[in-house]
Design a protein around this nucleic acid. Structure first.
Lengths: 230, 230
DNA sequence: ACAAAAGTGTTGAAGATACACCCATGG
DNA sequence: CCATGGGTGTATCTTCAACACTTTTGT
């Protein structure tokens, strides 16, 4: 058995979207040197626990949430002093959730758990700010070539929700007509016959759903989701 | 200090390209249970060594090479028995090199180091075959939206080399005229005035170089490299 | 009637595809 | 003069981009 003194942790960068604002989940530490400091949810991996299970457990324990989408982002282990207690390498995971599905609930190790607009994050401990920056970039890129926007919305959504989500996250204007035309041309959203109005005024809109099955089928036929335009 | 018994390693999936064939670098283990087994170059991370430095060291030690391109691929830590001695989490790196730059030289821990055509790999130890599969996929994808093909070629190359590289790795035919038109339209390759002939016959061709500076400049202006066509 | 959001088509420009012949060299 | 690989242009089609008015609802 070799001798090595490095600990391994996982951290989650969880994005939520609501009414034109992109949020990131942070928790306030209850113990240790960084007590009261805001950090990303995460913690040490157990000896017989897969990495994925570790993130899922931490998200559950520290904030009470279960995510819609989860993928590995990056492993942070080049700065050997990123944790100043001892050497910790952290595997960061990128996650998406619909915030309406959950009431945040700080639990085991966390004093508090809260959504922060991605543009108004408090200072985060460790190198967690870098993680958020990287994850934000990944979100922007991935939005254009994979239909992950739907994981930030509820099962049923207005076309305008989807459109605003894209505008807001990609930080640019989108032509409504071209956007709708393109999304519909893919054939991966279905129109329901429910009609709903949101604000106090304005014409009600139809609700749509994302057809994941259809999307998976299309993938096998070399379909390429792609939304990039002015 | 928490109690955790997980070791951390790095592995490198190094691709080389020569004359229409894509190769992967493997080494033959000299010690341990898997003696004589072919595996990817890699090893344990030292306590005060950044991850990147660890891969670079291992590639140097086990095969005597320095790569042109190196990026993190994925961290393998979901199968807790991927190494049956004890739990090891491995950070896999994706690397590109021009094989002509090096004479492979097995050194410290490796008995032998060798290039294998990616389609004729021997059985690899651990989960290294999965790593190769993932890396191969990454290479194919990345080739289309980042000019990393150049890192597999020498400083100077024939247009036909570049074209064959794309054909060969993407496994499809490419229209020579359209390919050349597109690559030239980016303005990131320069024509030298050297002319060279390769085979025993045929018209000699001009050598080209990749203009990395120009490419980096263009990136700042929101340039998007993109090669995808029938 | 007005304010607010939903819904809807057309046209021109640009980019992608398809396609075939001549040129330079060595044997 | 033949075999081999290098070099080049055009016509068509598809896709993207730009653009504005009508409908439904609440106040």
């Amino acid at each position: 058995m070799i001798n090595q003194n490095i600990k391994i942790a996982v951290d989650g960068i969880v994005f939520g979207y609501e009414k034109g604002i992109l949020y990131v989940l942070a928790v306030q530490q209850r113990f240790g040197k960084l007590t009261d400091q805001w950090v990303l949810p995460g913690g040490f991996v157990k000896d017989n626990e897969p990495l994925l299970a570790a993130v899922e457990r931490e998200l559950k324990e520290e904030a009470g949430i279960t995510v819609n989408y989860l993928e590995q982002l990056n492993t942070f282990g080049d700065d050997i002093h990123r944790d100043d207690r001892f050497r910790v390498i952290s595997v960061a995971y990128f996650a998406l959730v619909n915030p309406q599905n959950f009431v945040l609930k700080a639990d085991t190790d966390a004093k508090d758990a809260k959504w922060f607009p991605v543009n108004q994050l408090p200072a985060l401990g460790y190198d967690h700010h870098d993680m958020v920056t990287l994850a934000h970039q990944r979100l922007k890129n991935k939005l254009t070539y994979q239909p992950i926007g739907f994981d930030l919305l509820g099962d049923e959504f207005l076309f305008s929700d989807l459109e605003n989500l894209y505008c807001c996250i990609l930080e640019r204007d989108i032509d409504r007509r071209n956007f709708r035309k393109k999304i519909l041309s893919f054939g991966i959203v279905n129109e329901t016959d429910k009609v709903v109005k949101i604000g106090a005024s304005g014409r009600p809109g139809k609700l749509f759903t994302f057809d994941k099955l259809k999307y998976n089928q299309l993938l096998k036929e070399n379909f390429q989701f792609d939304i990039r335009f002015a």
